[in-house]
Amino acid sequence: MAQAISTRSLTKQFGRRVVLHGVDFSVEAGSAFGVIGPNGAGKTTTMRCLLDIIRPTSGEVRVLGKDPRAGGPELRRRIGYLPGELFLEGRVTGRTLLAHYQAISGPVAPGRIDGLAERLGLDLDRHTRKLSKGNKQKLGLVQAFMHDPELLVLDEPTSGLDPLVQQEFHAMVREAQHNGQTIFLSSHVLSEVQQTADTVAILRDGRIIAVESVNGLREGAVRRVRFTANGITAHDAGAMLGGVPGVGHVAVLESGGSITLSATVEGAIQPLVRALGTLDLTDLVLEEPDLEESVLKMYSSPAETDQAVPGTAEAAR
C-alpha cells in the first residue's frame, strides 16, 4: 500500500540540544496513525518537520509522495493541519476567518463549514476573541477538516473539548478514514489515541521506542482478574496461579468456605483460562486491559544515551 508519510533518520537539533534522534516511521495511506508520548517527547517537532514549518537538521521526509521543502502551496492544500497551540485573529468572526482559510486551502463543498460547526456546537458568528479555549479548538478542527484534505495532521486535537464533542470528533475521524483520508494525530493520552488510531507509535525523548497496532497493544497489556472458588486453599490457588505464564501480583482478598483472589496477567490469557477451568468457580471478573499501565512501563524503561551528533541515533522499531 502507498505511504502517505515516511521518515528516515529524521533528526532535529536546536543549538546543542537534539530533540529528534534519527526517527523512522511510515504511515500507510488511508490509515489512522497516532503518536503518543509525554510533553516534550518531540511530537510537535515531528509534525512541524512534516509540514515544513521547521526543517530537519538531517534525515529524509516524504509527505504524500513529496519532499515538504519542495512541495509548496500545492502540497499544503492537500493537508489539513491543527496545531497544538492555536493562535487566532481576534477581531473577526469565526465565519470570516474560515472564509480566509478557504481562500488559502482551496475549494470547500457548499454547506460543509456550517455542517461541521453544527456537529461541534460552534457559533460561527461570534468574534474569535470571545471564544473559550474549547470553542477555539472547534474552530481549528473545522478549518482542518473543511476542505476534505488527503492528509489530516492533528496535534492534541481534543484539547479543551468536552466529552460529548470529543465523541463527535472521533466520529469525524472515522468518517474521514472511511473516505480514504489519512489521519496523523498526536496526544499524551493513550485512551484518546486508541479510540481513533489503527497504529500507535510511542515517542520518548525524541526516539520512537515502539510501533504497535492498537490490537497488539491490547494483547500485550496488563489485565486484572478476580475470582472466587470453592474447595481449594488460598495457598494452593496461589501456587497454581504462580505457575501460569504472565501471572503476577497474586493477592488473597477473602478466605473462608470459599476464597477470593486477585491477580494481574500480562500477554495471552489462554493459559490463565485453562488453569481457572480446573477450579470450582462461583465468580470471575476479567477486566479490560490496562493500556495506560503498559505504555507507562515503556516511558519509564531506561532511555538510550543521547547523541550530540545529528543522525547517529536510530529509533527503535
Score class of each variant (00 low, 15 high):
279 L>H: 06
274 R>M: 14
152 L>C: 02
221 A>P: 01
179 N>M: 15
110 P>A: 10
267 G>T: 01
134 G>W: 06
186 S>K: 01
136 K>Q: 14
277 G>N: 04
79 I>K: 13
72 G>Y: 06
82 L>K: 11
26 S>R: 06
72 G>I: 09
274 R>H: 13
307 Q>G: 15
160 G>R: 10
118 E>C: 11
278 T>R: 11
145 F>A: 12
213 S>M: 08
293 E>H: 13
171 A>I: 14
278 T>P: 10
178 H>F: 06
66 K>Y: 10
148 D>E: 14
18 V>W: 00
85 E>H: 08
237 A>P: 09
53 I>F: 04
119 R>K: 14
276 L>R: 07
54 I>E: 02
87 F>N: 15
64 L>E: 08
146 M>N: 08
185 L>P: 04
37 G>P: 15
7 T>Y: 09
178 H>S: 15
36 I>F: 02
30 G>D: 07
85 E>D: 12
153 V>P: 05
250 V>G: 13
235 H>L: 15
215 N>Y: 07
275 A>Q: 13
150 E>K: 08
238 G>S: 14
100 H>F: 15
174 R>V: 01
215 N>S: 15
228 T>K: 08
228 T>F: 04
118 E>L: 15
157 P>M: 07
282 T>R: 08
90 G>A: 12
172 M>H: 01
55 R>W: 02
100 H>G: 13
179 N>W: 13
241 L>K: 12
137 Q>V: 05
135 N>E: 06
113 I>W: 05
279 L>A: 01
55 R>S: 06
55 R>A: 09
12 K>H: 10
53 I>D: 05
296 L>I: 14
143 Q>Y: 10
120 L>V: 15
4 A>S: 07
54 I>K: 02
112 R>Q: 15
283 D>S: 02
302 P>L: 01
60 E>S: 09
133 K>P: 06
39 N>T: 13
184 F>K: 01
146 M>R: 09
38 P>W: 07
89 E>Q: 14
288 E>S: 12
107 P>M: 03
71 G>L: 08
17 R>W: 01
211 V>N: 04
181 Q>G: 08
18 V>Q: 08
128 T>M: 02
75 L>N: 13
25 F>I: 01
265 V>F: 08
